[in-house]
Nucleic acid binder design. Structure first.
Lengths: 213, 213
DNA sequence: ATAATAGTGTCTGTCAGACACTATATC
DNA sequence: GATATAGTGTCTGACAGACACTATTAT
């Protein structure tokens, strides 16, 4: 599943199924692993079929194998979670009649909208993303390569669904070892005083972590 | 993979393979999922074949599918992590010539000892267990149903490989909401002043968390 | 009494949250 | 000027680590 932040909303990529079962229903994008393909490679391949991929974080989410979850046959799904910056409009893939971004609020509030057990995969992925923002620099995966502290804060606010104090947030991310790398340039794209632009730093875990309360 | 704490050491259950490939080599216990079996059910079944299971925590660890990881054919392994209190001596299963506990220090320091890619699964599982002790009450899974604060502290010290101040540790676990449930009874099995006995409480996440530094 | 472990109180430094304040842009 | 956003300084309350101290057992 692919998550992004666009227009102040956490969104997931969904496709409308063009074939049975669940024809016409929305589903998470996916596909079958090739006979000689490693699992992460298959995830990257499927991802690139649905969207122009650049600067995407990809990690294994979990494996779903309940008998009967696919009415055709026994299917074990190894779900991958992708976090990406706001991308150009998604493109329809081979088995997808249509692809679009849907807010997770919409998807979560209507559990029957998604085919198979994809609602369960969706909620697991959302919770994983929320948790990982705390102790990893993954929020940067939702940003363009160069971003301001305010843009990063908006990611946290959107994914967690909270408001954060801009001043304390700034002090905190600026103090987290290896989180942000200054570029030396500034931008006024949000008006007001020019803001510094940063790239993501080398840290893989944040200390101290960003805690949601 | 099964982890336990015994004699102040973090230990993993390993079996000596009785059949090819890797015949005679140590490996993590496992088996194949039945055609109509859910993944957690298969994990429970395999676990009960190797050890007398009681009061065991079980969670999905990750899925390993690199082509060539099993020389016979393409095999996708869905690894489960089990955390258990010190158990009676393990019993050999169907495809295992021998089963025993091995300290993770020994296993980790000799990466070629385990068959297949089991060393990678092992290190992933150890890291998962270490991380989960921080923000979940899972340390209690390594304890008997009733335990003292000192016994719980020994679990943390063993899994993390650190020394913790007994007084600060006591204050901290006692203050963590829903972590410990007093039984009202005491024990002197470690000598000295009688210690209260606790059961694990209803909390699923710890707040505040126990932080390793 | 001595030793061992259990548990509490207190001090101190660090850090999160609240928020006053300064800085630099546009209109 | 007014207004918007960026960023710093300061205060306060909570909490982690260090450790003195008390409590209750066995020998």
């Amino acid at each position: 599943m692919v998550l992004t932040v666009r227009e102040n909303e956490l969104c997931a990529l969904v496709i409308r199924r063009g074939i049975a079962p669940y024809r016409g229903r929305w589903a998470l994008p996916g596909g079958f692993v090739l006979p000689d393909e490693d699992l992460p490679d298959a995830a990257v391949r499927e991802l690139s079929e649905e969207t122009r991929t650049a600067n995407v974080h990809l990690e294994q989410l979990g494996t779903y194998g309940r008998p009967g979850r696919d009415p055709r046959m026994r299917v074990i799904t190894v779900a991958y979670l992708a976090l990406a910056a706001d991308l150009p409009a998604p493109t329809a893939g081979s088995d997808a009649a249509e692809a679009r971004w849907s807010t997770v609020d919409d998807l979560v509030s209507t559990p029957r909208r998604l085919a198979f057990d994809h609602h369960e995969i969706l909620t697991d992925g959302i919770e994983r993303a929320r948790a990982k923002l705390e102790y990893s620099p993954l929020a940067t995966a939702f940003c363009a390569p160069e971003f301001t502290v305010a843009e990063l804060r908006l990611v946290y606010e959107t994914v967690w669904g909270v408001r954060l104090d801009p001043r304390n947030f700034h002090r905190k991310v600026a103090g987290a070892e290896g989180f942000l790398l200054p570029t030396g340039t500034t931008t006024t794209r949000h008006g007001g005083r020019p803001a510094q632009l940063f790239r993501r730093g080398p840290a893989t875990i944040l200390s101290p972590p960003m805690l949601r309360n």
